[in-house]
C-alpha cells in the first residue's frame, strides 16, 4: 500500500511537507516541555487565527501577515508574563481567546466563514503544493538552524534560569527567541495540521520521549523519531481508513504517548518512591 501511496504526487507532497514540519515541531517541543511552556504554545497557535484572518481581510500574503502577527503575540505574551503584570496563564488565556475571536469575526466578515475556518483550524495536509513545501522548508531550516546555534544556552536557561542569568546568559533574549521560533513554526504548520492540532505536536513528541529517555540527547533524538513515526502512521491510517489526516497524526502521537507512559521508568520510579 505504501508504494501505491508514494506514487501519488499529493501523498508525496504531504509526506515531504509533513516530515519538515514534524522535525521542526519535535525539536521545538523539546524546549516547550523542558521549559514547561506548553500553554504558551497553545496560546500562540490559537492566536494564529487572528493573523490568518487579517491576511484574508486585508488581501495581504497570509503567511507573512500571520508570521508578523504571531511573532508579535508571542513577544506580547512573553513581555506580560515576565514583567508579572498579569499571571502568565491569565495573559495567555486572554490573548488567545481575544485573537481567536478576532480571527473568527474577520473571517465571517470576509464571507468565507465555514470553509476557510475549518481548513485553518484542522489543516489539510493532502492539499499542500510544491510551493507550500518550499515555504515550509525555508521556515523549518531557519528554525532548526537557530535552535542548533543557541542549543547550549537554551538548555542552560531551561535547567536553571536563575544561575544562567547570574553567569551572564541573556535570559530575556533567549526566552523571546524561543517564543518567536514557536510562532514561526506554528505559522509554517497551519496548512498541514491546522491551528488546533499544531499545539498538540508542539508538546507530544518531547513529552513522550521524556517518559522513557534519561539524557537530553536521547530525549531530543527520540522526540524527532517519534514525531516522524506519528506522521507516517497517521498518513497511512488516514489514507487506509479515509480519516482526516491531521487528526489521525495527532491521535497516533497520543497513542504512542500513552504506550510510553505505561512503561515509563520515571512513572514507576515515582510510584515506588510513594510506596516508601
Amino acid at each position: 500500500m505504501l508504494s501505491e501511496m508514494l506514487s501519488m504526487p499529493f501523498f508525496l507532497h504531504a509526506l515531504i511537507g509533513g516530515l519538515l514540519v514534524v522535525v521542526m515541531l519535535s525539536f521545538l517541543s523539546f524546549f516547550v516541555v523542558l521549559r514547561r511552556i506548553s500553554f504558551i504554545g497553545v496560546g500562540i497557535s490559537h492566536s494564529a487565527l487572528g493573523g490568518v484572518a487579517l491576511g484574508i481581510v486585508l488581501g495581504l500574503n497570509i503567511t507573512l501577515t500571520a508570521t508578523v502577527f504571531c511573532a508579535g503575540i508571542a513577544l506580547l505574551i512573553g513581555f506580560i508574563s515576565r514583567r508579572g503584570y498579569v499571571r502568565e496563564d491569565a495573559a495567555i488565556g486572554i490573548t488567545f481567546s481575544g485573537t481567536m475571536a478576532l480571527g473568527i469575526t474577520l473571517i465571517a466578515l470576509s464571507g468565507s466563514y465555514t470553509s476557510s475556518l475549518f481548513s485553518y483550524l484542522f489543516g489539510s495536509i493532502l492539499s499542500i503544493t510544491r510551493s507550500d513545501i518550499y515555504v515550509i522548508a525555508i521556515y523549518s531550516a531557519s528554525i532548526v538552524t537557530l535552535l542548533v546555534v543557541f542549543f547550549k544556552q537554551l538548555l542552560n536557561v531551561s535547567f536553571d534560569e536563575e544561575v544562567a542569568m547570574a553567569t551572564g546568559a541573556p535570559v530575556g533574549f533567549l526566552h523571546n527567541l524561543l517564543l518567536v521560533l514557536i510562532a514561526l513554526a506554528i505559522v509554517a504548520s497551519i496548512k498541514l495540521v491546522g491551528i488546533v492540532l499544531v499545539a498538540a505536536l508542539l508538546v507530544l513528541p518531547a513529552a513522550t520521549a521524556y517518559q522513557i529517555a534519561q539524557t537530553y540527547r536521547k530525549v531530543l533524538a527520540l522526540s524527532i523519531i517519534l514525531g516522524i513515526v506519528s506522521l507516517v502512521a497517521g498518513l497511512v491510517l488516514s489514507y487506509g481508513f479515509d480519516l482526516p489526516s491531521g487528526a489521525t497524526i495527532v491521535l497516533c502521537a497520543c497513542l504512542i504517548f500513552f504506550a510510553c507512559f505505561a512503561v515509563s521508568p520515571r512513572r514507576r520510579g515515582r510510584r515506588s518512591n510513594q510506596g516508601g
Partner: peptide, 29 residues
C-alpha cells in the same frame, strides 16, 4: 542557590550541569 529550585526530572547528567557553569565565560556560542 537553594537546592530545591531545579526540576529533579530534568534530563541532564552531572557533567552537563558542571559544563553549564562555563557558558558564561565562553560567550554566546
Amino acid at each position: 542557590p537553594q537546592e530545591e529550585h531545579t526540576d529533579p526530572d530534568f534530563p541532564v547528567t552531572v557533567h552537563d550541569v558542571v559544563e553549564m557553569g562555563l557558558y558564561g565565560s565562553l560567550g554566546m556560542f
